[in-house]
């Protein structure tokens, strides 16, 4: 488990469950974060994120939010938020911790002029369960006086990007998370492009939908491969486009989902069926 405390942040998880259900969950899973109970969906409504596609008489699902995550700074200002249409997709802990820390500040010194761009590609996390987003992270080191381009670029230039191989079945990729850019005006025609300088970090969130899993005697695995592409330029000239291939093979751990009883990947049980019955009964009485 990625340590939110070590990142200096506090983690809160709010749902429309009853207090005693949360207490059971906390015990069953050894949760160390704060579980908050919003049984009448008051907080959920106050945020304006009640799932209104579920009718009020559709027991017991009514009252759930469009699930998502807010990250604040120490002043309580929202710095990032994560909402996906598909509830199956949730940001992984590494991504949230990165969000808490803000843009990555690399302490590595920038290479001197005339040196080459360097890039390190990393799969952030130890596994890729179904639906949990992890990131492919490309950490560039761009020599002084040089820059990389952000999309879109005119024909003939290559923007810095992370691309997955076409045959990566079952891997879903999302919008590239990129650091701030600087406007850069081309001498030739006065065109202004957005460029990265220094040590930019590009992050490609990915998830898998279950079809990416392969099994062998050692367990279940997911492979992700692709390439990082870029082209380095200074004020006068551009180097030839470059790329670096990557290939990662990580375990596909189980996602803890419905916990209604014992079963593969569903240990320890928290007697979900009992809480579910209570929830259903209460909602029937309330209407």
């Amino acid at each position: 488990m990625v340590d939110f405390e070590a990142a200096g942040a506090k983690l809160y998880v709010l749902s429309y469950d009853e207090v005693d259900a949360l207490a059971d969950y906390k015990q069953a899973h050894g949760a160390t974060f704060t579980l908050l109970s919003d049984p009448h969906s008051e907080v959920i409504r106050s945020f304006g994120i009640l799932n209104t596609t579920i009718a009020e008489d559709d027991h017991p699902w009514h009252g759930i939010p469009y699930p998502g995550v807010y990250v604040t700074d120490g002043e309580g200002i929202i710095t990032q938020k994560f909402f996906e249409n598909n509830f199956t997709v949730r940001p992984g802990a590494e991504q949230l911790v990165a969000a808490v820390k803000g843009e990555d500040v690399l302490l590595a010194e920038r290479p001197a002029t005339d040196q080459e761009v360097e890039v390190e590609v990393e799969f952030e996390g130890n596994d890729l369960p179904v639906g949990i987003t992890r990131q492919i992270v490309a950490r560039f080191s761009v020599p002084k006086g040089m820059h990389l381009y952000q999309e879109p670029v005119p024909e003939g230039l290559v923007a810095a990007s992370i691309e997955l191989d076409d045959e990566a079945e079952g891997i879903v990729s999302y919008t590239l998370v990129a650091p701030e850019t600087q406007p850069h005006t081309l001498g030739t025609d006065g065109h202004t492009l957005e460029v990265y300088e220094g040590n930019p970090v590009l992050r490609l969130p990915i998830a898998q939908n279950g079809r990416a899993i392969t099994k062998d005697d050692d367990g279940r695995w997911v492979s992700v491969s692709g390439r990082v592409r870029w082209q380095a330029c200074n004020d006068e000239t551009c180097l030839v486009p470059d790329e670096k291939a990557f290939s990662f093979r990580v375990p596909s751990a189980f996602t803890v989902m419905a916990d209604m009883g014992p079963g593969e990947g569903r240990v320890p049980s928290m007697n979900g069926a009992t809480h579910f019955k209570k929830m259903t009964d209460r909602r029937k009485t309330a209407s």
Binding site: A9, V19, L22, T34, L35, V69
Partner: peptide
Amino acid sequence: NSEGSTVDLHIDREGKPAVLVFTRSAV
């Protein structure tokens, strides 16, 4: 919270960054 105490998030976070997850159900 799960212990039955009322939590005010902005007081509870004691000036630290917060990560607030809205999830569908723990059940």
